[in-house]
Design a protein around this nucleic acid. Structure first.
Length: 193
DNA sequence: TCGATGGCTTGTA
DNA sequence: CTACAAGCCATCG
């Protein structure tokens, strides 16, 4: 597999919020997704920071639209195989940095719409007690929304932290039908442990 | 290489 | 309910 030399950035705007996705020009796989931003530049800049060689194109606009949909509470038909999940064994600018990171991201992807998992439940599935390390993977998730780290909460069912802020996490979960009281999920089910 | 740092968890008070 | 300590272990500089 060759290096990522150039990425294709596509955008989508909805309700004044801008989303960007970056795909590899060689494999077509998604390398990075941004959370909603106030402007297109702001969204693009987050990607360009990591991938300075880029071109803008509408090629992945449909993907960006789906990402925007997830933010607004819709389900997505996108599958895991749109993502670049190869582990970055050397210095190839790939987003997934370790087997551990890949495993955590895949497990997170499998948390269904409207359900939640916990940092602990993910760790347990992977046979590790490195719950904090699970949180670190969430914090560095290159594919927010599509890999639904917003559905990963603390073991006491309070929200925990989120890259886009706790408020954003709460709002997305509410749109998915998760019932909260303050920072705590009160509805016992649906709940994925 | 090794210590510091985390979107955490559990136990104790 | 809050507060703090200790434990965990992958990652980063």
């Amino acid at each position: 597999m060759q290096d990522v030399n150039e990425v294709i950035i596509s955008n989508y705007m909805s309700n004044g919020l801008y989303f960007s996705v970056a795909a590899s020009n060689s494999t077509g796989k998604i390398l990075k997704i941004t959370l909603p931003k106030q402007s297109e530049d702001e969204a693009n800049d987050e990607i360009i920071e990591v991938h300075p060689n880029f071109k803008l194109s509408g090629e992945y606009r449909d993907v960006a639209k789906d990402i925007s949909g997830i933010y607004h509470g819709k389900k997505t038909g996108l599958e895991l195989d749109v993502l670049e999940l190869d582990v970055d064994k050397s210095n190839r600018q790939l987003p997934v940095k370790s087997e551990f990171m890949r495993n955590v991201l895949v497990e997170t992807f499998n948390i269904p719409y409207g359900e939640v998992g916990t940092y602990k439940s993910l760790g347990d599935k992977l046979g590790t007690r490195a719950y904090r390390a699970v949180g670190t993977v969430m914090a560095r998730n290159p594919f927010p929304l599509l890999v639904p780290c917003h559905r990963v909460v603390k073991s006491d069912l309070t929200l925990g932290n989120y890259g886009g802020g706790r408020e954003m996490k709460r709002e997305i979960l509410k749109k998915e039908g998760v019932v909260l009281k303050g920072d705590k999920i009160i509805k016992k089910y649906p709940l994925r442990q």
